[in-house]
Design a protein around this nucleic acid. Structure first.
Lengths: 210, 210, 210, 210
DNA sequence: AGCTAACCGAGACGGTACGTCTAGTCTTGCG
DNA sequence: CGCAAGACTAGACGTACCGTCTCGGTTAGCT
């Protein structure tokens, strides 16, 4: 739990040492660690500011000072381990899409309870407008980035230039969300290739109406 | 012990008359009405058994007697006005899919705050295993029914017989869920035709691997 | 989960200011005042933690934090105004006993509904073991103190040295309790002298068996 | 629990047979038995109309029809097994008083949890005016009857004729009540002779004021 | 070097809601 | 009409968290 605390207080367990009138990174880390652990172990139920404070051995005001709401804390937990996964660029759309679904979405969620945390984020966003806004902003940026895969395929001539790449990304992401939220992640890897093939086939034919 | 507690029901407002030792439909209706109203007006936040009881002028035990949990009550509220929407059968896959997305999913959610209620159902399912199970069962049945649209198109030769109709329905539903949960329902009708066309195009070409 | 719960304390009436992470004497006083008022006005019926909290404008957990049970709260209410009555020492046993019955017991209970409160304490002790233990400890100490009156009389030679002073005090206290619990306090002052005389006469003769 | 029930209903356990439109003695007995058993086993706490109905397999309205309150039911339970103990008449006051305390009061309460039941009666009387009235009437009659012991002693010349026999009985009963309510019944038999001797000695000397 | 300002752990506070229990009323259907 | 049954409104029970507040202690940086 990242307690430094050489100068241990009188409180039985060793406490974090004060670093004076500045935000204490050790405290922040301890709080995020505790929040992540609770989310992983008990899910969104059982996640309360009170419980996080208890586990992190932090005061509640310390949490409220830095995260205005439960939602903000949950989101930061998610983003902390989300950052490092880049988008695939294999040179072919089919393998790009398969890798995207497998590594960035489904597979990522299946590793280490990350899916549980993300389910919590989504659930929280249905309740709390600010969580909804933060999630929307985050997702919007991710989707825009992901269109690069489609655009590269267009440039290579793999799919028709009329393809609405944002919509295709939407479909991919929606598919993964749906499986996550329905608790059907386990059966999903078997469907990934079929989804990629179906969408690629759809993108190869120019829209009839155009 | 030794509580006086007058109670008795003659408390100013006219109370529901007792009908003896049987479930009182008037009470159940009042409770569902109150639950629905709160969900519509205030969303999942602000929805509490306490609040429902207050608004319905019902006792809390009456609610717990018939609905084992918050989730069960929310689900029944949703199912009460969900029942009547049948699946389209227009004779052509394209119009079927468009009608399905428009009427059964997106348009339905946009009417009368039904979307808010369904968002609550989904959020609750992320937290409460039993809500998750109930929702999964419900959705599974709905999806199976919806595959009929695809199967009819197969029979008409509109799409290749290798089409995995369950997967296509999954994609359609996932698309709608995703928009709902992201608060992007308003911009969705404009995309419905494009989604239908993309998927139909995908279904017309037999899988390359086959 | 997902409770909004505005709370906040700025609720119209001025609230007690927080004094930090220490027991707030103002809250404790308000709670005891409210408890006493309810006991006086409505008796043990009508006394509930809920009602006390409401009247004291305090939260229920604040009460439970400091008083583990209804009984503990009632007892403290009683002890709060019980403390100041000392035992008489008039120089003669007869006047001591009369003053003891009149001032420490019967007369005290008749003033300001204290009798109602003490009846509540006794009734609660019949139900709750811990209230019984607390009351027993309290009464035991009081009786021991009261034997001083008898012992002084022994030293003065007013009564025989074989007198079991604890038993005599028991009889005095029992007489007063009995009248209190039977609602016969009003007729009791007229009997006090007779009781004193009877017991003093009994104490003057050494036990025949000895 | 005194269920007769030859004609068992369909309710799993055998039910009492209806005897038509008349008060059913079997039901009354079952209710009183259940009430007594609960009082003995769990004391006044744990005694509720609900619990009695459950244990007696009776409907709550049946109880409310015949006993207007919890207090009435408790009192009847007590009186049911109280009836048979007569007052002693040994020919000497000392043995009369000792027998009275031993058999009618302390010893009776110590047998078969009767004391627990009577404590409940007294506690209930502190709360419920009607229970207080019923108990007062009952006790008043018993005390009047008990004065016979003193009056016979007066007639035999054992005690002075000025003795206020009602007051002496009061003291005896009060002593016993006090020990009962303080949970000190076990140590009381050892004190009974001393109490009798003390009071007899007191009664032998005419009041100084006369 | 002393003072001030901010952060920290802690935990009490007024509250809301939880899910359970009982009170006392009511009505049905059987006998 | 009496009875068993059990649903009903009402509300108290004791617990968990909420979000706010103040405390006492600590350290850093300014004066």
């Amino acid at each position: 739990m990242t307690k430094t605390s050489p100068a241990g207080g009188k409180s039985g367990h060793q406490a974090r040492a004060s670093i004076g009138a500045r935000r204490n990174p050790a405290s922040q880390a301890a709080i995020l660690d505790a929040a992540e652990a609770i989310l992983r172990e008990e899910g969104l139920a059982g996640f309360s500011i009170e419980a996080v404070a208890r586990r992190a051995r932090a005061g509640k005001p310390t949490i409220y000072r830095w995260w205005p709401s439960r939602a903000a804390l949950i989101l930061e937990v998610y983003q902390r381990f989300k950052q490092a996964v880049g988008f695939p660029d294999t040179g072919a759309l089919r393998t790009d899409l398969i890798a995207f679904l497998s590594n960035n979405l489904v597979g990522f969620w299946q590793s280490g309870m990350c899916g549980t945390v993300f389910r919590s984020v989504i659930a929280e966003a249905q309740t709390t407008p600010e969580a909804a806004a933060a999630l929307a902003a985050y997702e919007s940026a991710r989707r825009r980035d992901a269109t690069l895969m489609i655009e590269r395929a267009k440039a290579r001539g793999e799919v028709t230039a009329q393809t609405n790449s944002l919509l295709v990304v939407d479909l991919l992401v929606a598919f993964a969300w749906h499986r996550l939220l329905n608790g059907r992640l386990a059966e999903t890897p078997a469907d990934i290739e079929a989804v990629a093939d179906l969408l690629i086939a759809g993108m190869q034919k120019p829209p009839a109406s155009a």
